[in-house]
Design a protein around this nucleic acid. Structure first.
Lengths: 336, 336
DNA sequence: ATAGTCCCTGGAAACGATTCCATGGAATCG
DNA sequence: CGATTCCATGGAATCGTTTCCAGGGACTAT
């Protein structure tokens, strides 16, 4: 009743030794039905809850994994977290979720925390060049999996989206609609998806014979304010784009606002396509055309991959396809 | 270099006893400058990282707190988590974030995990009637704080928003604009904010002499689909409302979509006010009028309150004011 | 010179579980 | 009936750290 009931108390009440109590409670070793029953009753009666730290200390398995996302407030990562969490739960692992807040220092802080907590494995959507504690994780031989993003120079299994294919879908779609000047709102080059999408944009523009004007390329930081700034810059050019492609949902949100503030209309005056789908995009006026990830699947797969690594099973990186969801922000039928 | 370097290894390399090494590394006890230096160098060289579990086991302080939110995918809770996390970090506590997913069973699962992990304290945005593991937390005397929501029958400090005031602001605003039929899209009665807002709505309607037609009240579950369904029901009534008040942002999103699907226009044809502000609402066309929380402050305060409880300082519940942010979804100037 | 302080240190106990090892008794077999 | 096997059990070691306790050496004060 006191909150600090140990296995010793349970054993005493049940009239058995600590060893026997432990065997009953962990459930794997041979015990007599009588002892089993008495221990169970005693544990129930005392409200016994094993101390996970003591257990982990002895048995070198904590049944806890760390998940470090770049920004919890980004619905995309929230969905990844959700998917991962559910998958972990299904294998009775606990997920410790942490938020790097798109900040390398905070990423290091939480990786450090995961290491000292001796989690059984770590999933991270990394940023930066892979210095700092990412190396420490590697040295500590803690099972590691990347999700959504990768870092060069790490031999770590990952689950990512097919960024090249996604961008190609978006550009092809816009090209088919007759656009030749597609403004690109890119992510930071310190993040792998930022780089991959930028390259893919250049390749797709070349492939479809669109204008490859350097003025059409801007760089943001995966947050909405930077999307607004980039959009303002693009629209202020001498020959402004007729379509915008945002490399991430939050920057798309910023673009949305900026276009509206300039008195132009999405869909009718300027087309907009975003990478990442979030629920809200469907409900906008006009609804947003997107190239969608299945964020939840990304999280699920990453977690299953991590559990494979932890249990010593073979683990291969996966690349998930993206798919184009055409709505009215690109076709101009604004429904009004 | 092996990942499993213990304090014993550090002590050996430094040529001191384990006790001395521990004293140096925890930094509080008296040690000689020479020993201090040698131990530090040795620890650095070996990449020593103390085992948090062993440390916590001995010193009955884990420096970890649990934060259980109802739904990470809801930006409101993501912001709470962010605020709480930053506050914890400032006091060098690690936050273990978990997601109840608006599900009582999962809430119990994670409370159980927190208890077995022996966290120093728990913040929860609770749901349900307070059975299950909420009682277990109480029995274990683990410091507990409620955020955003409360549960009757628990003597637990909390940080909540002033729901009554918020709803009153919204209703007064709509009444001043001449609306007499305000449709209410409420939350579940199993959640304290759902109940509080419903009551406040009824009181405000009475106070301002608006129609108190029972047909104007619907109940959702704080997710967007339920907001859409509620809106459909409201708009199909014999005398449909001219304004909608959604008790939460996700349900407002659903309402938004449903209104658009019915070919009506937010702002011009039907006013919409939402509780909770999310970044995106500002960028919509038209921008949404909201009654805003400061979610981040809610999280920060809750965490500081929890740390107070943990350290035995007096802790009093706090109620934070909400504020009305008028945008175009209620005034009808849709900017087009 | 001797007693009393004060610092620093090493060694060992403790935290709460799991797991190894030895043992006693029952059951089986020749 | 004696020897062997087997099962359940108790007791002790162990995980990696902190913390208590006692003691040794240096220093001051008388």
């Amino acid at each position: 009743m006191d909150g600090t009931v140990t296995i010793r108390d349970v054993a005493a009440l049940a009239g058995v030794s600590v060893g026997t109590a432990s065997r009953v409670l962990s459930g794997n070793s041979a015990t007599s039905p009588a002892a089993r029953e008495r221990v169970r009753v005693a544990a129930e009666k005392l409200g016994y809850r094993p101390d996970a730290r003591a257990r982990a200390l002895r048995s070198t398995r904590s049944h806890a994994v760390g998940l470090l996302v770049s920004d919890v407030r980004n619905p995309f990562f929230a969905d990844i977290a959700h998917g991962a969490e559910q998958a972990a739960l299904a294998s009775s692992y606990v997920t410790l979720l942490a938020n790097a807040n798109e900040d390398t220092a905070q990423q290091d802080t939480y990786l450090e925390a995961f290491l000292t907590q001796r989690v059984d494995g770590i999933i991270v959507a990394p940023q930066g060049e892979g210095g700092g504690n990412l190396r420490a994780v590697e040295r500590a031989r803690t099972p590691l999996v990347f999700v959504d993003r990768t870092v060069d120079g790490f031999d770590v299994p990952s689950v990512t989206a097919d960024n090249a294919q996604g961008i190609e879908l978006a550009v092809a779609h816009l090209a088919a609609l007759g656009h030749t000047r597609v403004g690109y709102i890119g992510g930071p080059s310190s993040v792998s998806t930022g780089r991959a999408r930028h390259e893919a944009y250049l390749a797709a523009v070349a492939r479809h014979g669109l204008d490859d004007d350097a003025e059409l390329v801007t760089v943001g930081d995966f947050r909405s304010a930077s999307g607004a700034a980039a959009t303002a810059k693009l629209l202020a050019g001498r020959r402004p784009p007729t379509a915008l492609l945002a490399a991430d949902s939050l920057m798309a949100v910023g673009a949305l606002g900026e276009v509206r503030r300039q008195g132009r209309r999405i869909g009718a005056d300027v087309a907009l396509v975003a990478l990442d789908d979030i629920e809200l995009f469907r409900e906008l006026d006009p609804p947003l055309t997107v190239v969608a990830h299945d964020a939840r699947a990304l999280g699920e797969r990453a977690m299953r991959l991590l559990l494979d690594v932890i249990d010593g099973r073979p683990a291969a990186s996966q690349v998930l396809p993206m798919r184009l969801v055409v709505r009215e922000s690109s076709t101009g039928r604004s429904g009004r």
